[in-house]
C-alpha cells in the first residue's frame, strides 16, 4: 500500500433521491385494496398444488401454472415463528431517514400456514418468544393507505 496519510484525496458527495411509481399489479393490487378498504388479508390458491400464495401472485413458481382468482381470506391471527430485535441503526431507503430503535420484528405464521414478517406491539424482548399467539392490529380505516403498514403491529393474545 502506497497510501500516504498526508496526501489529500477528494471525495464528492452524491445524494441520490429518485421518485418511482410502483404498480402492484392485479394480484398484489387486490391484496392491498382489500387490506385498505376492509382490513382483510387475502391469498390466492394454486390450482395445481393447492398451496396458498402469500403475497398473492400470478404464477405458482413451483408448478409453473397461472394461479387465477381462487381467493382465500386469511385469519388475522397467527403464531410467532421467530423474532429478532433490531438495535442497529439503519437508514430506510424509502425515506432516507434513520429508523427509530429498538424495534422487534417477527415472522408470523397465520392460521392458514402462510407467513409474513411484521412488527410486534411488545417491545420487551424478555416477553417475546416463539409460539406466542398473536393477532393483527389494523390502523383505523381513514389512516389505511393500502400498504403493509396498514397493519400497525401484531399483539400478543395468548402465551404458548
Amino acid at each position: 500500500m502506497t497510501e500516504k496519510p498526508s496526501e489529500e484525496f477528494l471525495v464528492m458527495p452524491i445524494p441520490l433521491e429518485l421518485p418511482f411509481q410502483w404498480a402492484a399489479g392485479p394480484y398484489l393490487g387486490r391484496f392491498f385494496r382489500e387490506l385498505r378498504d376492509n382490513a382483510r388479508l387475502l391469498a390466492n390458491k394454486c390450482p395445481q398444488c393447492g398451496r396458498l400464495l402469500f403475497p398473492p401472485r400470478q404464477v405458482c413458481a413451483q408448478c409453473h401454472v397461472k394461479v387465477g382468482e381462487d381467493w382465500v381470506e386469511l385469519s388475522d391471527k397467527g403464531v410467532v415463528e421467530d423474532f429478532t430485535v433490531v438495535v442497529e441503526p439503519m437508514s430506510d431507503p424509502s425515506t432516507g431517514e434513520r429508523r427509530t430503535l429498538p424495534y422487534p420484528t417477527a415472522t408470523i405464521r397465520l392460521e392458514e400456514g402462510v407467513s409474513l414478517i411484521h412488527y410486534l406491539e411488545e417491545t420487551d424482548s424478555a416477553k417475546i418468544r416463539e409460539g406466542l399467539k398473536v393477532q393483527a392490529v389494523f390502523k383505523p380505516r381513514e389512516k389505511r393507505k393500502g400498504e403493509m403498514r396498514d397493519i400497525l403491529y401484531f399483539r400478543i393474545v395468548e402465551g404458548p
Binding site: 496526501e7 411509481q21 410502483w22 424509502s94 425515506t95
Partner: peptide, 24 residues
C-alpha cells in the same frame, strides 16, 4: 376491472465518490 393499484415511492440513499489519487 379495477383501476391499477399504483403506489408512489422513492429511493433515497446517500453516496459519495472517491475520485482517486490522479484525479485528486
Amino acid at each position: 376491472r379495477q383501476e391499477p393499484f399504483v403506489v408512489p415511492g422513492k429511493l433515497v440513499v446517500p453516496y459519495r465518490y472517491f475520485v482517486g489519487r490522479l484525479a485528486s
